Amino acid sequence: MSAGLSPNRSSDLSALLMAEERSDLMSQELRKAEGPVVLFLHGFPELWYTWRHQILALSSLGYHAVAPDLRGYGDTEAPASSSSYSCLHIVGDLIALIDYLGVEQVFLVAHDWGAVIGWYLCLFRPDRVKAYLCLSVPYMPRNPEMKPVEGMKLAFGEDYYMCRFQEPGVIEEEISRAGTAEVLKKILTGRRPGPPLLPKENPFGIYPENPITLPSWLTEADLSFYATKYSQKGFTGGLNFYRALDLNWELTAPWTGATLKVPVKFVVGELDLVYTTPGIKEFVSSGGFKHHVPLLEDIVVMEGVGHFINQEKSEEISNHIYDYISKY
């Protein structure tokens, strides 16, 4: 505890003790809250904050809403190596959290990278998930013939965003040059369908002479919250999830061909960048998705809605969550 203290600085000690006291109080509140647990998992480049509307809505209905920052995000620890961000590490974090909460099962709600982690949680530990409401990213079965990054390069080229995220430090430097707040604003407000490309020249398409107007569902205060946390923490933790894609492929070889045995509802925006990536819409609608997730109960496609669906249509998503999990 003393490593970060300045010599003879009692104010430092007082501040640290106050922070630890607040943390202890938060932990006590987290453990003693009542009601069925709804575990929310965020995506990139978001934080627990993306669920701010759903936390209030579900809590008001008697549920215990829990929305952690995933490993490497926000106020969490952020190991430097991408090997510390494998699906086994992240699912391990979640199992430890569920155990800490003192419950056997949770209702799971997840979006974007959180949705991917949600699928892994359902695959590895279906006994801990009562039902899963998934936003934006369907379950994609493991292709035993090709590593994912190689497949993405072949399908979409070197400028495909997941490919551009692979080399440590490169995209971080490009974000730094463009400005954290501007990059976050561009990503969160983007509505262009299809696979996102990040060309070497102006990868985020930011033009000072053509400033972005925030939509009604994203305020300057919201953007400031995200930008402040990422300015403090950096993006490497979140990017390391992408850098562990091939490692996850190697680790999940034993689950090749496995089906998921958890009840699922899937909700996606019509303009979602994942849903409109070639092949995904067909996979979802043709029965391929249902084949791998046999307990898939419903698919909802929301017209005119983009990727950040739980923020853009917060009330509708809260209603979808409640309507679904209240059946159990």
Rank of each mutant, 00 (worst) to 15 (best):
E173M: 12
K233A: 14
C87T: 13
M18A: 15
P196M: 11
D24W: 06
K233W: 10
L97R: 07
T276M: 03
V106M: 08
V103E: 05
S10E: 13
E34W: 00
F289C: 02
L25Q: 13
P7A: 12
M162C: 12
G4E: 14
P195G: 00
A258F: 14
G237E: 10
Y226V: 02
F156I: 00
E182C: 06
K233L: 09
V293Y: 02
G190Y: 07
T277F: 05
A96V: 10
N210M: 11
T76D: 11
H320P: 00
M146Q: 14
K185E: 09
Y328N: 10
L133T: 10
D75C: 05
I117H: 08
A258P: 04
V262A: 14
K265I: 04
L218V: 01
R142M: 12
L198D: 09
A155L: 15
V149K: 02
F225M: 10
V103C: 11
P36W: 07
A3S: 13
L56V: 12
H292W: 08
E201A: 10
S14T: 11
T213H: 13
V66D: 09
L17F: 14
D323S: 15
S224F: 05
S83K: 11
I206W: 03
V37Q: 03
Y63K: 06
L295H: 15
L58W: 01
M18S: 12
L198S: 04
Y73N: 07
V106G: 05
M1R: 06
I171K: 03
F225P: 02
I299V: 15
E46P: 02
P168I: 03
P211S: 08
D75L: 13
G237I: 07
I98W: 04
K281H: 08
K281N: 01
I325W: 10
R71C: 11
A80G: 00
T256Q: 10
H111L: 07
V103T: 09
V37F: 13
E172F: 05
K327I: 13
V262D: 11
C134A: 15
S84I: 01
V91N: 11
L5C: 12
S60K: 10
S286V: 00
E158N: 08
P199F: 07
S176Y: 12
V267W: 07
K147S: 12
Y328K: 02
G238H: 10
T276K: 04
M140V: 11
L296P: 04
M18T: 13
E34M: 06
S81G: 03
R142T: 13
N248F: 07
L154W: 07
K313A: 06
R52Y: 06
A178Q: 05
S176G: 00
G288V: 01
R9W: 03
S2N: 10
E303P: 00
L133N: 08
F241T: 10
E282A: 04
A253S: 14
G169E: 07
E104N: 13
L214P: 04
E145Y: 04
E21C: 08
V170M: 06
L5Q: 15
Y226R: 03
V301K: 04
E34Y: 00
Y139R: 05
S285W: 01
